[in-house]
C-alpha cells in the first residue's frame, strides 16, 4: 500500500513566490546578494537569517501540534535559555555555555511533557504556566537588565557563517534535517500522526504514547532553547523582557500556514518551516517598502488571511462549484 502524500505544498510555495515577487517590486535590489566579510549579504539572506528563530520554533511546534497539543511556552523558553547563555558566555567555554542553555531547555520540555502526558493537564493550560513563569525566571536570571557579553565564540552563533551561510540559517537547516531523519526516517512520524488522530486507539495498538508525548515536548523546548541562544548571540546580549516575546504565536501561525491542522494528525515539518519563511518574507518586505509602521500589522493580517483562504478546502469546493455553474 502506498500512502498518499498528505501535503503537496503547492499553495505555500506559490504564496512564498508571490510575496518574494512583491518584495522585488517594492525593493528592486531584493535579490541582490554579495559577500560581506565572508558572509552572504542581501535582503533574501535577511529573510532566511531573521526567519531562523521562528523556523526553529516551528520545527518543534509542528510535532507538538501533530499530537493535538500546543506549546505556548516556547517564547519564554527562548528568554530563559538566552539569559543563561549570555550570563555564562564570558566566564565559561562555549560547550559549557551551550550545554547549560540546552540542558535547561530540556528541563523545560520535560516539565511541559510531564504536565501534559503524565498529569493529563490540557496542553494549552499546562504550557501557559511556563509561558507566564518562564519570562519571570528569565528576568530573575538577568536581574531585569540586558546582560551583555563579548565572547566571540557565542557571538559566532548569531553573526558567524559557514561558507558564507549565516550560522543561524545553517543551524536551522541542520536541525530540520535531523528532525526529518528522526521523524520521517523511522516510524516515529507515523506513530505521532496516529496518536494525534486517536490517542486511545494508538495506545491500544501498542504505541508508547505517554513517553512519546514527553519526548516531543522536550524536542520542542530544545528547538526553542537553540532559538533563544541564537537570539541572544545576535544582539550580543539577553533581553529577558523582549526575547522571543509573542514568537509562540508566530510559530503556531507558521505551522498552520504549513497546512498542519490544530486538531492533530497529519503534519509536515518542511512546510511549517516554509510557513516561517513566508511570515519573515512578509516582515522583511514591509520593512523594505517604506510604508508607515502603522500599516505593518494590517498588511500582515491580510496576507496571512489570503494564504489561509487559498488552502481552505471549503473555498476550493466553492470555486469548483461556481466554475461548474458558469459552464
Amino acid at each position: 500500500m502506498t500512502l498518499r502524500q498528505p501535503h503537496s505544498g503547492v499553495p505555500q510555495i506559490i504564496a512564498l513566490l508571490v510575496i518574494l515577487a512583491v518584495n522585488w517590486i517594492v525593493s528592486p535590489q531584493f535579490f541582490d546578494i554579495r559577500l560581506q566579510d565572508g558572509r552572504l549579504f542581501g535582503s533574501l539572506i535577511d529573510v532566511l537569517n531573521r526567519g531562523a528563530p521562528v523556523a526553529l520554533l516551528s520545527i518543534g511546534m509542528v510535532l507538538v501540534i501533530a499530537l493535538r497539543g500546543i506549546d505556548l511556552s516556547v517564547g519564554a523558553v527562548m528568554a530563559i535559555c538566552g539569559a543563561i547563555a549570555a550570563s555564562l558566555a564570558d566566564s565559561h567555554s562555549l560547550p559549557v555555555t551551550l550545554a547549560a542553555a540546552l540542558g535547561v531547555g530540556l528541563l523545560c520540555g520535560l516539565w511541559n511533557g510531564i504536565l501534559v502526558a503524565g498529569l493529563g493537564i490540557q496542553p494549552i493550560v499546562a504550557t501557559l504556566i511556563l509561558m507566564v513563569a518562564g519570562r519571570g525566571i528569565a528576568q530573575l536570571i538577568t536581574e531585569g537588565r540586558i546582560v551583555t557579553f563579548t565572547d566571540p565564540a557565542l557571538a559566532w552563533i548569531g553573526g558567524g557563517s559557514i561558507v558564507g551561510v549565516p550560522a543561524p540559517v545553517a543551524i536551522t537547516a541542520v536541525m530540520l534535517l535531523v528532525t526529518l531523519l528522526l521523524v520521517r526516517g523511522t516510524a516515529l512520524g507515523l506513530m505521532i500522526e496516529a496518536t494525534g488522530g486517536n490517542e486511545r486507539a494508538s495506545t491500544l495498538a501498542g504505541i508508547g504514547t505517554r513517553a512519546m508525548t514527553i519526548a516531543v515536548y522536550v524536542w520542542c523546548s530544545l528547538c526553542a532553547a537553540m532559538a533563544g541562544v541564537i537570539a541572544a548571540a545576535d544582539i550580543l546580549g539577553a533581553d529577558a523582557n523582549n526575547a522571543g516575546l509573542w514568537l509562540e504565536l508566530d510559530a503556531i501561525l507558521a505551522v498552520v500556514i504549513g497546512g498542519t491542522s490544530l486538531f492533530g494528525g497529519r503534519f509536515s515539518i518542511s512546510l511549517a518551516v516554509l510557513g516561517a519563511l513566508i511570515i519573515q518574507a512578509m516582515n522583511t518586505g514591509i520593512l523594505l517598502s517604506g510604508y508607515p509602521p502603522q500599516f505593518n500589522l494590517v498588511v500582515k493580517a491580510v496576507v496571512v488571511m489570503a494564504v489561509l483562504l487559498v488552502q481552505s478546502p471549503k473555498l476550493a469546493g466553492l470555486s469548483a462549484a461556481l466554475r461548474r455553474r458558469a459552464r
Partner: peptide, 13 residues
C-alpha cells in the same frame, strides 16, 4: 535591540 537591528538591516539594503 533585536528589532532595531532587524529594521536597520532592511534600511541599509
Amino acid at each position: 535591540r533585536a528589532k532595531g537591528k532587524e529594521v536597520m538591516e532592511s534600511f541599509i539594503k
